[in-house]
């Protein structure tokens, strides 16, 4: 299941809801992405204090659903949950949740990492950093994210 939302999410409640009543699940793996406490000071002495995530409504849901389907074909998964937030967030807030459930741990671990690597490079989200003067600057994509993706290519 995928959800794209502005609101925060409760990690424990989401995991409980996913596993409830499904006794075929032997292991659950979760990844939570947070807004980092950006303590780096930029060249002009301003400091990043929040970020806003923009996305492409429609394509986001389509890509996340495709990523979920690919993972389900590749690993024997009992359930999958991807939640990605958009809008303005401050350091410490949740951005993304990936939960995978399987009979055994290996499928859960591997598929969770696969989902995150794909999501980082394929889901149409863009981060706008906001500094303490209210100025926004768009975050550049990282090549290391593409490298992370390439290891899943068979």
């Amino acid at each position: 299941m995928i959800r794209v939302q502005k609101e925060n999410f409760d990690v424990g409640a989401e995991i409980n809801a996913l596993s409830h009543g499904n006794t075929a699940i032997g292991g659950i793996c979760s990844f939570v992405g947070l807004v980092r406490d950006f303590q780096h000071t930029k060249e002009d002495n301003t400091r990043v204090c929040a970020m806003t995530l923009e996305h492409y409504p429609g394509m986001t849901e389509k890509k996340l659903a495709e990523i979920e389907e690919t993972a389900r074909q590749r690993w024997p998964l009992e359930d999958v949950l991807i939640i990605h937030r958009y809008g303005r967030m401050e350091p410490g807030e949740n951005i993304v949740l990936v939960v995978t459930a399987s009979a055994h741990r290996q499928a859960a671990f591997e598929s969770a990492q696969f989902l995150m690597d794909f999501l980082k490079t394929k889901a149409p989200f863009w981060k706008l950093e906001e500094d303490n003067t209210g100025t926004g600057s768009w975050v550049d994509a990282r090549e290391s994210d593409d490298d992370a993706l390439s290891k899943w290519e068979k």
Binding site: H55, K120, P124, R142
Partner: peptide, 9 residues
């Protein structure tokens, strides 16, 4: 649609 490389997650 035209956009820069994505930076979500």
């Amino acid at each position: 649609a035209i956009f820069p490389p994505v930076t979500g997650g």
